[in-house]
Amino acid sequence: MEKFTQLTGIAAPLPMMNVDTDMIIPKQFLKTIRREGLGRNLFDEMRYEDDGKENPDFVLNRPAYREAKILVSGENFGCGSSREHAPWALLDFGIRCVIAPSYADIFYNNCFKNGILPIVLPQEDVDKLMEDAERGANATVTVDLEKQEITGPDGGSIHFDIDPFRKHCLLNGLDDIGLTLERAATIDTFEAEAAQARPWV
């Protein structure tokens, strides 16, 4: 998993409540054999017309936001199914940070497994960042995980909270596998002893 330390980029505004995982990535794209490649279909139904053409009004299709790295949105972001395809699609598009007042549980957890930082902020702070984000290409936002601080385009900063263990994992790029591999020596020892005790396995 890629480390998350500091991120500077364009923030795209998506001022909606209850953005669900079906909106993020509809079910017809779950048959894929890969984690990548889903970015093209991120927000598929809002992003494309029935004939497959881009909907020019959707935020991620507007020239200012095509390179967005941060998404600012409303309450209960990521509700719906448990599909890990939702964070996979965000990541593949290039979004590594979501800022919202609240999230659905499973989506929230899935983000951390995939190196995405979901930031929870009070509604007023989200509203302020939403306004900043509306300013398009000028709206560069910096997220510093170490300092737990968001710096807006005008230089003002906002503090955010995060669970220390999750922070540690993101800062160091540790996923479950990474953490388990920290115990590689213990696994080696166990394996060697097991091979003695149960050589037929």
């Binding site: 890990e84 596998i177 388990t180």
Partner: peptide, 15 residues
């Protein structure tokens, strides 16, 4: 699940 499949492939263990 799929994340755990990857975990087992990489570590031969499961949390």
């Amino acid at each position: 699940g799929t994340s755990e499949v990857e975990h087992v492939l990489a570590t031969q263990t499961l949390i």
